[in-house]
Design a protein around this nucleic acid. Structure first.
Lengths: 332, 332
DNA sequence: TTGAAAGCGGTACCAC
DNA sequence: GTGGTACCGCTTTCAA
């Protein structure tokens, strides 16, 4: 299917290609009459410039890459929307890639995006080894990393205040009178995971409570993971009366597990999540959690990327996203 | 940041550009010795071919466009994963676009994807006017449409058996003894919406039950929409004992609404959804629903697109995706 | 087996 | 104000 080119438009309008280009891009001097003639031809042929060709010469593709562990995880679609909506405002398209948390896939993906000449990359929950990420950042810019600590002058970083969030969450449980507080977490050593555990530990420490290793139970960051992890925790340590989870998905799975164990939430076990996904408010009991504005994260990341594109020499930034506590029925 | 080009590799290896191209693409005759020399240079420079340039000459970008109403809606991320995973197997990337169910945005998006020279487009839940879609299909190929009826020799269609699914669902409720059965639905006139309502009506008709217009309540296809719609339905028609919803999100919202109205599910109201999203099994009560293999839909759509790309002259296909009933706690 | 030249569809730069 | 020409980085065609 031969598509119409700038040449066709030029021929129909009886002008040169450059004139067409000027008319379309509102660039350079051009008489009103010619411009109208050209635009008429454009409309008649339904002409749209080939973005590849434009990209070749301008070295800009108006495309960014968004790398996430798994778009199926309820956290990421909202971030993706933020990125896309902000991108659309600036006529940018988004290439979405999943890594399944595999560092090699992640690195491969980033190089592939670079080969496709995206203008920038936003990567969330990166697990790539420091050194490989460094090597990549040396060859590509700009990059925005979400929830990963990293220093490089091509890389801006956006971090949720995971430590504070976890601290607030556990403090709330403590203030409710709980003293045996467990945590369900996916031990994947990402920054957000580590910080949430540290916040949990800090809160306990400030209450002069002992750190009981066996109160921290490992599990996948999913409904099923939380379900299994709570069952394990309660069978090992039946004295536990409250649980803080790595994310809402795990928390909702845990609530179901409690239900299946004939434990009432929050009377027998209080459960507190992290993220505030849409489902959290509708669940029965509705979930107390730490709210993270996922959409805003996406928006901010995209804005940062565009700024870096416009001002390549400006120093990179580290942005902290604030969080707050949402108390619902699952804690009391 | 100047990236290394084929020229750099050629210079380092001491050969011409075409020889490098041949070595990389395993195309044409080339001696083993030269090839090794070239590959060494490629490795040393970390060279990756510019995909834009490749696309310009081959007229293939190895990129497809995926158009969805809203990636935030739990149904779509799984389909997107199916598309991407299948795409990745063939070295394809996916441009993801949201339309927010706005026909104009949808059409604009498709033209924009065409301008970016994606090799094909997969569009889900299209609401674009027939005539505009037709005009677009005349200028672009190939296209795969999911859940929209459309005939064009550039367009393959994938349909979930919505009619049968709705029929099965309502039949189950009828077999449980329910006779006052309501439906909560987003009246957006998409194919899937219309067919699900028709299936509901057909099931009632086959039981010689009257069609009560006021039993069909309109609502957004979201948690909140289902929540509000159930409240409205029960206040208008308190005699209703069972409800079938357009999708699981509405069903889960409805369950919460029933809870807030002090109605037991399923004892006071039975609730049946559609889609079987991951959350359905974890909710309390867990949700009876019509299972749709969303991941498979994405996979199949991508495969179909690749086939159409490989065999442009083969006639297009219409593929039906089968469904089945999953009975859980919310009906009995 | 290898290289030179043309061209994909645009834009930038420089004449006129 | 408008047109000619070079060139972005690659593959295809054809000649050597």
């Amino acid at each position: 299917m031969k598509r119409t080119t700038i040449e066709d438009v030029a021929a129909l309008a009886g002008v040169s290609r450059q004139t067409v280009s000027r008319a379309i891009n509102n660039k350079g001097e051009i008489s009103k009459a010619t411009k109208e003639k050209v635009m008429a031809a454009v409309a008649e042929l339904g002409y749209q410039p080939n973005r590849l060709a434009q990209g070749m010469v301008t070295q800009r593709t108006r495309t960014v890459g968004l790398v996430v562990p798994d778009i199926t995880n309820l956290f990421f679609p909202e971030v993706a929307r933020g990125v896309q909506d902000e991108g659309r405002l600036h006529d940018y398209n988004v290439l979405l890639c999943n890594t399944d948390d595999e560092p090699e896939e992640e690195i491969k993906t980033m190089y592939s995006l670079a080969a496709q000449r995206v203008d920038g990359i936003i990567s969330m929950g990166s697990k790539a080894p420091e050194e490989q990420l460094m090597r990549f950042a040396n060859t590509f810019r700009p990059i925005v990393l979400i929830n990963r600590l990293f220093e490089h002058d091509h890389v801006s970083v956006i971090n949720v205040d995971n430590f504070k969030g976890a601290q607030l969450a556990v403090n709330h449980l403590l203030n409710q009178g709980h003293r045996q507080i467990g945590m369900l977490v996916n031990q994947d050593f990402t920054r957000s995971q580590v910080r949430r555990v540290q916040g949990y530990q800090q809160a306990l420490a400030e209450f002069d409570l002992p750190q009981n290793e066996s109160y921290i139970v490992d599990g996948a960051p999913t409904l099923q993971g939380g379900y299994a992890a709570l069952k394990q925790l309660l069978s090992q340590s039946p004295e536990v009366t409250a649980v803080f989870t790595y994310n809402d998905l795990m928390a909702l799975g845990a609530i179901r597990a409690a239900h299946d164990l004939d434990k009432k939430v929050p009377d027998d076990v209080a459960i507190m999540g992290f993220d505030d996904i849409g489902m959290a408010a509708m669940f029965t009991p509705s979930l107390s959690t730490v709210r993270v504005d996922k959409y805003a994260i996406g928006q901010i990341a995209m804005r940062r990327l565009l700024e870096m594109l416009d001002n390549p020499n400006e120093p990179v930034q580290t942005i902290n996203i604030d969080i707050d506590l949402v108390i619902r029925e699952s804690t009391n």
